[in-house]
Amino acid sequence: MKLYKNTTQAVIDSLTQIFGDKKYADKVIEKILKQNSKWGARDRRFIAETTYDIVRWYRLLMEVTPCGPHDYWKLLGGWCAMNEQELPDWVEFEGLNRKAILRKWEEVKTVRKIAESIPDWMDEQGEKELGRIWHDELKALNEEARVVLRVNSLKTNVKKLYREFSEVEVEVTLDERYPEALILAQRQNVFKLPQFKEGLFEVQDAGSQAIAPFLQVEPGMRVIDACAGAGGKTLHLAALMQNKGRIISMDTEEWKLTELKLRARRAGVGNVETRVIESTKTIKRMEKMGDRVLLDVPCSGLGVLRRNPDAKWKLSTEFIEKVIDLQQNILHDYSMMVKPGGKLVYSTCSLMPTENEKQVAKFLTNNPDFTLEEEKHIWPSEGFDGFYMARVVRKA
């Protein structure tokens, strides 16, 4: 592909904001793409995919390219060399030699933390906690994330929506492991599709789609989604409950619950009530009220690095230590909302036992009125994002 100055400059501007200003990559790219209405689909794809790829391989590119940490033109040149992309005769690329870059790659490609482009501490932590499987999971986390849709069963079904997409040449595939998922063959802006505006689907990774069914909800239950965020799993729970019963969706951030309400209206969901968690009193008022409680807790996000590659450069061991304490506090405090005989699911998008199995084991030791019923891993090497979930039962 030929490089053009305006789209290439957009990549440089994106990298400057992501690394220089420490902004989130998805927000930066979304804003950049809105700046020029004349860019076509190919231009937008080049800007987004190239930016994400350079962010993903930042450490490797820094290692093989003669440049400083904020010389984004040289980083782009190194990316071009690694991807057999011809470099234009631009002043920004002066001094770059493709053969020298590839020779350097040959020297470092057996050093995992460089070849897979992650910080030293992350490689050490992964090796320590996951042992021999860390290598394969890490490789999977460097693959490009696929766009997955969850079909809204309140309004349609997988076969019907599959046919609709075929008629408008939107190519999707199925995966028997995830009965409500449609996987896009090619990345595109699905939010412009009329089927999205009609509430026929939500964008939700296939691994994430496994969590709501794991809670084993039934129509008519009282269900509490206590870390609801913008409500992806709440909407899935509502569909599984056939809009019957009651879902109380809670979060500490009111703006997220406002977004949830908008999404619920589009999806035709009518059994959701939102509550802002203002203090521990909000939780105590709901003691023993839930037939089911979902705790999709804050975590390191190591299972979704293929979707958020900039997180590799923002995370730290100090942050993870803090989030582990927060997870245990949420488990301890929010579990009071489960009624006797009810069930709670603890879930994360992390791979690490310190955030997963060990958290649940510690909770069960300190809360003997709960017992483990089932736990489940979804690994990035299986093709989608990585998740952990454990279902515990409160003794009647």
Score class of each variant (00 low, 15 high):
Leu3Phe: 07
Leu3Met: 12
Lys5Glu: 11
Thr7Ala: 07
Gln9Leu: 14
Val11Glu: 06
Leu15Arg: 07
Ile18Met: 05
Asp21Ser: 15
Lys23Ala: 13
Lys23Gly: 03
Tyr24Ala: 12
Lys27Tyr: 06
Val28Leu: 03
Glu30Pro: 00
Lys31Leu: 08
Gln35Gly: 12
Ser37Lys: 13
Arg45Met: 10
Ala48Lys: 13
Asp53Gly: 01
Glu63Tyr: 01
Thr65Phe: 01
Asp71Glu: 14
Asp71Pro: 06
Tyr72Asn: 05
Met82Ser: 06
Glu84Cys: 05
Glu84Ala: 13
Asn97Thr: 06
Asn97Ile: 07
Asn97Gly: 11
Lys99Leu: 09
Lys99His: 07
Leu102Pro: 06
Trp105Val: 00
Glu106Trp: 00
Lys113Cys: 00
Ala115Trp: 04
Ala115Gly: 02
Asp123Thr: 00
Glu124Asn: 06
Gly126Met: 04
Glu127Ala: 14
Gly131Pro: 09
Arg132Ile: 01
Ile133Gly: 08
Trp134Ile: 02
Trp134Pro: 05
Glu137Gly: 08
Leu141Ile: 01
Leu141Ala: 05
Glu143Asp: 11
Arg146Tyr: 01
Arg150Ala: 13
Val151Leu: 06
Leu154Ser: 13
Lys155Arg: 15
Lys159Tyr: 08
Leu161Cys: 10
Tyr162Ser: 14
Glu164Gln: 14
Glu167His: 08
Val170His: 09
Val172Leu: 08
Asp175Ile: 10
Asp175Thr: 09
Glu176Asn: 13
Ile183Val: 14
Ile183Tyr: 03
Ala185Glu: 14
Asn189Glu: 15
Lys192Asp: 12
Pro194Phe: 04
Gln195Trp: 06
Phe196Ile: 02
Gly199Asp: 08
Leu200Ala: 02
Phe201Gln: 08
Gln204His: 09
Gln204Arg: 12
Ala210Val: 02
Ala210Lys: 12
Phe214Gln: 12
Arg222Val: 13
Cys227Met: 06
Ala230Pro: 12
Gly231Glu: 11
Asn243Trp: 05
Lys244Ile: 02
Lys244Phe: 07
Lys244Glu: 15
Ser249His: 03
Asp251Gly: 10
Thr252Val: 15
Trp255Ala: 13
Thr258Leu: 15
Glu259Gln: 14
Asn271Ile: 11
Val276Gln: 14
Thr280Ala: 08
Thr282Met: 04
Ile283Phe: 06
Lys284Leu: 13
Lys284Thr: 07
Glu287Gln: 15
Gly290Asp: 10
Asp291Met: 07
Leu295Arg: 05
Asp296Phe: 03
Cys299Leu: 05
Gly301Met: 05
Leu302Phe: 01
Leu305Lys: 02
Arg306Ile: 02
Asp310Ser: 03
Trp313His: 00
Lys314Leu: 04
Ser316Lys: 11
Ser316Asp: 04
Thr317Asp: 09
Ile320Ser: 00
Lys322Val: 00
Lys322His: 11
Leu326Gln: 12
Asn329Ala: 05
Asp333Trp: 03
Ser335Gln: 10
Pro340Leu: 03
Thr348Trp: 04
Glu357His: 11
Gln359Ala: 15
Gln359Lys: 04
Gln359Trp: 05
Leu372Arg: 09
His377Met: 13
Ile378Arg: 07
Phe387Gly: 05
Tyr388Met: 10
Met389Arg: 08
